[in-house]
Structure formats: structure tokens, C-alpha cells
């Protein structure tokens, strides 16, 4: 036994696969594979060299350069706006769908349950293509003023994000005691008041997690955005796509780092809230 301090562990020796040297090596290798490219991307956004390969000292000039790039900033703001819109609408629709499917029995319910899962399993490219065809065939206006020119992307994002919200909220509803709602009704509350004071507070962690998930999904998406952005709408992924095709530059690294930071912040928020619920004894 090499470990100097012997710690208590639930599974005894033979089951400690994690402590074998080869296992640790594989774990380490996979995590390096998963993280090294992103770490390099972030590190070289601070590198004082255009070549992106040799470390020449710390600088933030590429962030300043990116911040001065009006198109890039506009694209970034647009993407954040779409993500907030997606989070808001997808949470509402997803929660409504989850509540209906959990609470009521109606004809062809199994069809609805399957249908709600469709956007999760359909390949992204097919969904992107479908949205492209749909919006161009129904003549969705192309020349709307900002921010309405982002409506196609926002709508497409909501369509693929709200089933994920529904899954999260429904999982949360499974632990809801329906007698609470009935008790509220027995005490004279109307259907809306009963829902607001019993089911919705119980759903809240699911709603928050779902909203953050929708936000992250929207920020992460490239393919559907690519197919739904019009000729004049600039969004972050599409802008970066054109830059990436062209070359690898520290400026792209800087912008990517900012987006990674936003996603990481949203994730940290989600994890933090979940941990708090754990401590408070929910879930």
C-alpha cells in the first residue's frame, strides 16, 4: 500500500479499479484529450504572438482587438439575445408541455409523448434544413429591423430546446405530491392559484435547470443557426465560422474564450443551484 494515509473507502481493494496505474493513465489521457485543445485555445488567446504556437508573453490585446471589432461584438450580442429569448420561451413551453403530459390523460397521449421527444433525436442538419425550407417557403420576411431579424434563429432554437426543458421539468414533477394541489383546491383556490402556490414552487428547480440548459443549448448551436440566419443577420457562430475557414488567429481564440466563459458561468450557476438543493434536502 503506497498511500501514506489510509482513507476509508466504500468498495474494498479489489474493486478499486480507479487506483490501478493503467486505469489512471487512461483516465488522464482521455481528460487531456478532452481538455488540452480547449486549454490551448484559451492560453493562446493571451499570447503575444500572431503565430499561435510559441509563447511570447502575456497580452490582452486580442481581446481589445476583438472588442473593437464592431461586427464581432454585434454578432456576440445577437447570440446572447437569442440565447435569452430561447431560455425564456423554451422554459415556458417546455414546462407547459411537461405539466400537461404529467397531469392529464387525453386521447393519443402516447403520440404526444413520442412527438415531444422528436426534436431531441432528429439530426441537427435535418432540423436546420427543415427550418430553412419552412421560413423561405412561407415567405418569412427577410428585412425585419433588429432584433426581429433574429426571429428565425430564435424560433428554431426554441423548437429544438423546449423538449429538453420538458424532460428536465417532468423529471422534477415526478416527485410532486398532487394532494397538495388538491388541498389547495379544497381550500377554495382557483385552478391558477392552486398551480401557482403548489406545483410551480415545486417545479422551480426544474424550471431553473431547464432555462439554463436551453440557454446553453442555444449558445452552443452552430448547425441550426447556420441554416436559419439570413444574409444580413450576423450571429456569433456564423461569424466565427467564416473566420475559422480563413485562418487560425489569436483574435478568434479571444472571442471563443469569452463564449466559453459565458457557458462556463451558466454551467457553474446550474451546478451551484443543484448543490444548494442537495443541501436543502430537495431532489
Amino acid at each position: 500500500m503506497k498511500a501514506p494515509t489510509k482513507r476509508r473507502r466504500a468498495p474494498p481493494g479489489p474493486l478499486d479499479y480507479t487506483r490501478r496505474a493503467w486505469m489512471r493513465f487512461v483516465l488522464l489521457a482521455v481528460f487531456v484529450f478532452l481538455y488540452a485543445p480547449l486549454a490551448a485555445l484559451i492560453a493562446f488567446s493571451f499570447n503575444d504572438s500572431k503565430r499561435n504556437i510559441v509563447w511570447r508573453g502575456f497580452t490582452t490585446k486580442y481581446y481589445e482587438k476583438a472588442a473593437a471589432n464592431e461586427v464581432l461584438v454585434e454578432a456576440f450580442v445577437n447570440s446572447l439575445l437569442i440565447a435569452f429569448f430561447t431560455a425564456a420561451v423554451a422554459t415556458f413551453l417546455g414546462a407547459a408541455a411537461a405539466w400537461l403530459l404529467w397531469r392529464y390523460r387525453f386521447p393519443f397521449k402516447w403520440v404526444c409523448e413520442g412527438a415531444v421527444a422528436l426534436p431531441i433525436v432528429i439530426p441537427e442538419i435535418c432540423m436546420g434544413v427543415a427550418m430553412l425550407v419552412f421560413f423561405s417557403r412561407i415567405g418569412w420576411p427577410d428585412d425585419l429591423p433588429w432584433p426581429l431579424n433574429l426571429s428565425r434563429i430564435g424560433i428554431a432554437h426554441v423548437s429544438f430546446a423546449f423538449p429538453f426543458v420538458a424532460v428536465v421539468v417532468r423529471a422534477r414533477l415526478a416527485s410532486f405530491n398532487r394532494e397538495l394541489e388538491e388541498a389547495a383546491r379544497d381550500l377554495g383556490a382557483g385552478p391558477w392559484t392552486a398551480l401557482r402556490d403548489t406545483a410551480i414552487p415545486h417545479m422551480r428547480p426544474g424550471l431553473v435547470a431547464g432555462a439554463l440548459l436551453a440557454f446553453i443549448l442555444s449558445l452552443d448551436d452552430f448547425v441550426i443557426t447556420f441554416f436559419t440566419s439570413g444574409p444580413d443577420t450576423i450571429t456569433f457562430p456564423v461569424k466565427v465560422y467564416s473566420m475559422v475557414r480563413f485562418s487560425v488567429t489569436p483574435e478568434v481564440n479571444a472571442v471563443s474564450t469569452v463564449l466559453v466563459a459565458v457557458t462556463a458561468a451558466a454551467t457553474a450557476l446550474a451546478v451551484g443551484l443543484r448543490n444548494r438543493q442537495f443541501r436543502e434536502g430537495f431532489l
Binding site: 478532452l34 481538455y35 485543445p37 480547449l38 490551448a40 485555445l41 493562446f44 499561435n52 446553453i216 449558445l219 452552443d220 448551436d221 452552430f222 448547425v223 457562430p237 466565427v240 465560422y241 475559422v244 487560425v248 478568434v252 481564440n253 471563443s256 463564449l259 466559453v260 457557458t263 462556463a264 454551467t267
Partner: peptide, 15 residues
């Protein structure tokens, strides 16, 4: 890493 934008991860691999 899965929560990071697909395009950014692909770009990181290009580098």
C-alpha cells in the same frame, strides 16, 4: 467540454 460551442471545439482541434 460538451457544453462548449461545437464550432469552438472543432476550431480548437484545428489548432
Amino acid at each position: 467540454p460538451f457544453l462548449t460551442n461545437l464550432l469552438i471545439r472543432t476550431y480548437a482541434l484545428i489548432a
